[in-house]
Design a protein around this nucleic acid. Structure first.
Lengths: 196, 196, 196, 196
DNA sequence: TATGAATGAGAATTCATTCAT
DNA sequence: CATGAATGAATTCTCATTCAT
């Protein structure tokens, strides 16, 4: 594990797989396609990854950690929970804008991960959602957000809104709206709803 | 097409497939499993469906039409756009509560339908989302909702919130919250946000 | 056997099968296609025929008997073996001209009959070829044909020549030569070769 | 294509397929049988061939080219068109004697190739027949053969005679006549017929 | 007899994974 | 480490044949 990550090929494969999975979907993607995209031999992939599932999981863990780290930095300097939520939204959408393939995989492939990867518990993704939950609790403690809001439900509502809008945004050719405008609108709706 | 729908086996296969797809996912589901679940021979499936893809599409069209019809009925008697949205939310979540397998398929399998079914345009699903958009426009025309809300974005935010919450609700074993309560909360957040 | 032949449907199926086999070949032809062409149900075919092989065999026996009977009549009035051969050629080609589908089946499908029908001995076809052999022997006895001609080989050479020419003639769209002219030429070549 | 031909397995599969197709016929031959006969895994066949049709076509093209080349050599040194035809006959029959399986395939399977391989135009086989046509034209130009012989018909008559005789010869267990004797007889008959 | 829906054995083909080089 | 040819298990789909109506 530690050894393989020191190797440039590991990342080349991860990146190739991200492109291929995003374009064709996990099941439609063939190992040989990923190998070609990464400019390695089919067999080489099995030096760095256990199997096909492992590529998807690794790819996800790898990128999700970066996303988590980045989000922590983005939010750290802000005190106001409302502003934090707004920043979460714009960071999330900004991320998707930069990294469409990864967004596609998170939204589509990972949704069904439970179906084919029994043992894989999507820990990183939960952590990501929990950032929202923590902000809401913080707001409630500071008396800024309504106490009757259920943080566990609200975090999903907020994320779901962001996610669905971004999916549409990613898929559409012509971008009618700037992603920042959209982020602002969504957090505004949501905040008006939960503010005291 | 007309003949096959008069047939009991057509629906038996649809129902079996709904269960199997929901449990294992489209690609992990084998025709022979669906056949066994429907208590028919493998070959019988091909009397009623072109191929595996066709099962998924038929299943979806069949159920989505029922969902659309039902939603139209639910909303028809209501005048207030705000109340309409609330009713949309509770109807949607109620539907999912009753029809978890189908909900699972719509949320997970159909998301990636574009990947493997080039020609299939998810028309029914668009119609469903457009119900929300229409309500929002109606509210704007009546001066009840803010004019700066972009209906095309707001419909996705609203649906995404509902969808994500319901996914979580469907997947979790223990149901901490009543689905009606959840529906009410989500539409409340959202309505506060878009009301003038 | 005797019962089934009294039935009009038996012949309808034979005729339909002749058309279908000729067009698509035995293995590419589906029972359901033959049934449709004969305007009967799939199952009905199995009332009149044992199985798919049996259709081909029956079709062949049925038609070959007619061909044999006809050839006997054509030749009976002629005394000169040379004239008999000429008549054989023109009758054969004339038959093919009238009955292209059957010709196609005899030439193509029956050639490989040995491969899939172990037990079927192509008795009628042997009889047909033996007409030629008998004529040659007759000619040799009358001192008209060379004694060193091996009748068993010559019959095949003569039939092969006719058969190959007719195959080409059947398959080609534009008919450059009249089939009678061709028949005459072939029997001429052959006769010059074997005449004393 | 160039890579696959350098490979020993490509030819091992071709040879195995020749044996299996000749014995059972194309449709009765199963990929797994060919694989077993070639001592490779089923999947290996698909590394070297597109599909089952492609095996038959490749096998045919491969061998037919050798046959064409060989025939060209055999005939090249001869001036007299009559002697050329005789050499054609003996070479053809000699080839069949050495290569019974291939002969069987050419005679039986390729006949029906038009039925299942729409796009495959049997170019090599036409070239082979045209050798005969060219010899006949040459003979006519030299005034050796009758001008009223239609080369396009005569080539088929000659080839058909050879082909039918050789088919019988290949199929029969006990070989009553030497193939050279037979070749001589057939070309004699035919030559007497077309000589001026 | 006639029907045609149902059956299920059978076959071609794919592709993740291995392993000798 | 890297390779990519070889493997063969697994899966979809076909279609001759049956049999209840």
């Amino acid at each position: 594990m530690s050894k393989r990550k020191n190797n440039e090929k590991y990342y080349r494969i991860i990146e190739a797989a991200t492109r291929v999975f995003a374009k064709k979907g996990f099941y439609q993607s063939k190992i040989s396609e990923i190998a070609r995209a990464a400019q390695v031999a089919d067999g080489t992939i099995y030096i760095y990854f256990e199997n096909k599932d492992d590529i998807l999981i690794s790819l996800f863990e790898e990128q999700m950690q970066a996303v988590l780290d980045n989000m922590a930095v983005q939010i750290s300097g802000i005190d106001d929970p409302a502003k934090k939520l707004e920043r979460f939204a714009s960071t999330h959408l900004g991320l998707i804008e930069k990294n469409k393939d990864m967004a596609e995989i998170i939204q589509v492939e990972l949704r069904q991960s439970g179906k084919f990867m029994k043992e894989y518990k999507n820990e990183k993704f939960s952590q990501y959602l929990n950032i929202i939950e923590d902000i809401i609790r913080e707001g409630q403690e500071q008396g800024l957000f309504r106490k009757d809001v259920i943080p566990g439900v609200a975090k999903r509502a907020f994320f779901g809104a962001l996610d669905e809008v971004s999916r549409c945004w990613v898929l559409s050719r012509r971008r009618r709206y700037d992603i920042r405008t959209v982020a602002k609108q969504i957090s505004e709706y949501f905040l008006s709803g939960i503010k005291t």
